[in-house]
Design a protein around this nucleic acid. Structure first.
Lengths: 193, 193
DNA sequence: ACTGGTATTAGTACCAAGTGCTAATCCGGA
DNA sequence: TCCGGATTAGCACTTGGTACTAATACCAGT
């Protein structure tokens, strides 16, 4: 009993956490014990076999990829839209979106939600942001649900430039405002192709 | 030969693309052919077996997780920094960062690079963006290397507000400029703790 | 109707990486 | 010295395959 059992099992869990691809045989060499011991250790720690581990890791990937695919064009979920007029999207802030140090959401996520909503509200294949002015009014934390409301400012817009205003709130408090000047390339006079 | 072989193989590839977790037996039921036929199809199409498929999918995850961990705090790589004065970062635009429709980089990536550089240049644990004004001057495409240069504007700054200007270029052409008004919470008079 | 060729199916031996179980052995402390 | 937990060994069985051979099935052309 060179290394005590308990310590070996702790290390085993860490090894597999970091690299789930190790077989029992490889582990037995790493820890200089028999394959059977590794099996008993896994049994006691409730660690599944290689194939099951890979299955869950792979499932995680697919899930993440589907999500990132869905949210590819728009950050946040659009819950209401009236093209060329207004749109609303919600974005749930998670731990992935905040600074580790202080738990405050990183600005570019709020920007991304607002900006992609500004793009979406314009019924145009090639809407691009030209200029924007942003105000980060109140820190947003993990767990917050940010609701962004975009409105197209018709009065200031012309055929090549459109102004979109976005106001983002958390529990009815405004946390962010943004004004986006968008460039539209599509010639709307001959949209019907 | 209800469904022609070639067509079945095409569908097989699509099925596995979408759900790599299917065993040959499940596939044989889905296509109403024998397991052997499925095996032959996989062989002809060069599709590996279930376990190999899961292994590669799982590997993809691990890779992605490491990457997202690395790029957690700063978007782009900081290549030069002089705290509270200036900083430079580079960001390579890939297919992941552009609109599928037109291949133009989505605004929030340029913003994210600039904003995180503005945060990084301030030697402060709690620097937050208060206001920013952005100009997207020229479309950025996949493959472009964006160099962002941040400079702290001392003249306009005081103890609670700092102004940072960021200019991003691609091959010496300015593609984006941003002005960030940052809020610093740390009391610099008693920074040594 | 016969023949040829492709497609499909069936069956066998074998492999990796396990589970589940029993049995033997080791090793350290009271 | 003897007990008991820890370790190791061995065997049967499982999944989801590979690799290979042999038998059918089916369809077209002559």
């Amino acid at each position: 009993m060179r290394v005590p059992k308990r310590e070996r099992q702790r290390q085993l869990e860490m090894s597999l956490e970091q690299n789930p691809f190790l077989t029992d045989e490889e582990l037995s060499k790493q820890f200089k014990v028999s394959v059977q011991t590794i099996r008993l250790d896994r049994l006691e720690c409730g660690i599944p076999e290689l194939r099951e581990r890979l299955k869950t890791v792979a499932a995680r990937t697919m899930d993440a990829e589907v999500k990132s695919l869905q949210s590819d064009e728009v950050i946040g979920d659009i819950i209401d839209i009236e093209l060329d007029k207004r749109a609303v999207s919600i974005f749930d802030v998670s731990d992935d979106h905040v600074f580790q140090r202080n738990g405050i959401a990183r600005g570019h996520h709020l920007f991304a939600q607002a900006n992609s909503l500004a793009v979406a509200v314009l019924d145009d294949d090639l809407a691009l942001t030209v200029t924007s002015t942003l105000n980060f009014l109140k820190p947003v934390k993990s767990g917050d649900r940010v609701i962004a409301r975009a409105t197209v400012d018709k009065s200031r817009s012309n055929d090549k430039r459109t102004y979109v205003e976005v106001i983002s709130t958390v529990e009815n408090e405004t946390v962010f405002t943004g004004e986006f000047q968008m460039y539209q390339t599509t010639d709307h006079s001959r949209r019907e192709i």
